[in-house]
Design a protein around this nucleic acid. Structure first.
Lengths: 338, 338
DNA sequence: CGCCGTTGATGAAACGATTCAAGCAAGACT
DNA sequence: AGTCTTGCTTGAATCGTTTCATCAACGGCG
């Protein structure tokens, strides 16, 4: 049904090998022949069949990226960075969404294994270690993104969340705040834990400062609104003058809860805020939110770079672990003098 | 390097044909043989090679979805619906992002053509008609999503945006508002045009009601904030008591502009608002935003259904065009009692 | 006993590209 | 003139799977 090299070759009066050469090694073909072949290709509307090419090559040119939540701007930005970097080396990005479900993650990884992808960038769910090992045994390189860097045998790209948490809390302390509240959860998430750890570290080194935790069951807008009500109560009784949230979605939710109702709070006067991720919604909030920024696109592109390096690395060679340092985007919500 | 059927066959003491039968037609293989083959597969860790399977089959089992903006929750929800539906028939969803660029779109479509995907769901950029025809000539079915339904020869899934616009404006008129403002743009977008058309229709049939347009150059948060300033000016001089925006990102931006500054407006008292898309951020805004809801996931799954039907349809047979009716999610911003 | 139908297994052909050893023609060199 | 290069081109082998015509074995039946 489809047009194949054979027909192109026939039409151009050359052999199939020559057609292939025109496509892949034009340097070794006479100019006049190239033209003739190109003409035949155009006439017949020939489109190479990737499956055949891939079968022969033993590997596809696709790089897979599995994220936890496609709706989160953080991941879409990582994907953007990865896609651009992949394109530079002629690779294509395959995007998949695990929705935080290990089952869906496994489904996708199996699929990628069958497809013989060139590599997998994985933002792993709770325990993906087993599956990762399997992929690597099969010769498919893996780079962990944003999480699970605890396994030193797998290359990874991450952000120093402890530093980020410390940075956020320190900033609030610098503004003279002393009764801090951390909003976030679930505690099993590495990110949440690390950010909280960093914040506790900063608070611990300032006498008289305290840090209370308002746990949430997820990093979503709705959870933020719910948590906001509890924060409001704490502020009312003088037990909170600053909030640090596990991510920006939570921060936006908290802010909306604080600004709503009959007695809206004053931000940052009554309570200062710092979020995490620096998504565009944070900057455009009613009171623009100070946030810890992660180099999202850089993470994506670096992950791809590591992946490509991985290919000519001995299986037991040490892996690279790139850790980016976050930075603080200061805005009105934290009450810092510009 | 990889384990192939041949090795599995050898290990199990059967022929390659039998291994294939175990995998694809277990009914025609003796139970004992199946067991033996399964054991060999497990022992060797055999994973089928999709490229080979695909080469033989002449077509992949992947369905591609090209969206305009991965960051927009609207599209990610469509993708989610499509993915689920695709999985039901053993297909896999391939997600691509054109970022509104015809070039990127073309790049992706070319790639899909080489991959011989089972079909393409396309949210087309300005003019993709040519490319769509090409794909269909090559035997790759296409379903247009959310746009471009004007070409009746291609199956499509869309929402009645005119009805949506009318619905939004009518709702504001029902609340007694008379000086409406439409915020949105660019006018070349079908969606924007249709929503405005519907609003004009509703306003036109109420004597004494007016509709002014505040154009924007995109449907983004930032554009919304900018437009919000202009809306504020109109409200101040009594030329606006209600706003209808082209989508929710704009609505959120407008609301933030109106609520910020030294003299925050009262919503809905000073000015009522209705948005479009009903993204989760709309419900969680400081003043929850009334919005026109589109059945996003349904659009995705229906698009896949149409695509699969497409395969056994004559090239010149009439195509299906599913048009969903939007509905209004009423919240505080529009000042409706309820 | 010979024939037949059924059940299960076989193995070669085909899918469409790439690769590579080998061939060929035309100059260049001795 | 004969030998070597150089520059193109060839065509068969190969990748891993599925398909399908063919075959072997076996039990039932006349």
């Amino acid at each position: 049904m489809g047009v194949s090299v054979k027909e192109v070759a026939q039409r151009a009066g050359v052999s199939v090998g020559t057609v292939s050469n025109v496509l892949n090694r034009p340097g070794s073909v006479r100019a006049e022949t190239i033209e003739r072949v190109q003409a035949a290709i155009a006439d017949l509307g020939y489109v190479p069949n990737d499956a055949a090419r891939q079968l022969r090559a033993g590997q596809s040119t696709q790089i897979a990226l599995v994220v936890l939540d496609m709706g989160n701007p953080f991941f879409t930005d990582v994907a953007r960075g990865a896609e651009e970097q992949a394109a530079l080396s002629g690779h294509t990005l395959l995007l998949a969404n695990s929705d935080e479900s290990p089952d869906r993650e496994a489904l996708h990884l199996d699929q990628f294994e069958r497809q013989r992808v060139a590599g997998v960038l994985l933002v792993p769910t709770a325990d993906a270690a087993e599956r990762v090992d399997r992929l690597r045994e099969r010769g498919i390189p893996v780079v962990l993104v944003d999480r699970g860097a605890s396994d030193r045998s797998v290359a990874s790209v991450a952000v120093d969340d402890v530093a980020g948490g410390r940075m956020a809390a320190q900033h609030l302390l610098d503004q003279g705040r002393r009764t801090l509240v951390f909003v976030g959860g679930p505690a099993m998430l590495d990110q949440v834990r690390d950010r909280l750890l960093g914040a506790q570290d900063a608070v611990g080194s300032v006498p008289g400062a305290s840090l209370e935790v308002v746990p949430t069951s997820g990093l979503t807008l709705d959870e933020g609104v719910a948590a906001g009500e509890r924060v409001r109560a704490l502020v009312d009784v003088g037990e909170c003058d600053a909030v640090f949230t596990g991510n920006d979605l939570l921060a936006i939710g908290v802010q909306q809860a604080l600004l709503s109702g009959p007695q809206p709070m004053k931000i940052p006067d009554d309570v200062a805020m710092v979020g995490y991720d620096d998504i565009s919604f944070a900057a455009a909030a009613v009171v623009p939110i100070t946030s810890v920024r992660q180099p999202r696109a850089d993470m994506g592109s670096t992950a791809v770079e590591l992946l490509l390096k991985e290919r000519d690395l001995a299986p037991d060679a040490p892996r690279e672990h790139v850790v980016f340092q976050p930075e603080l985007a200061v805005r009105r919500s934290s009450g810092a003098s510009a």
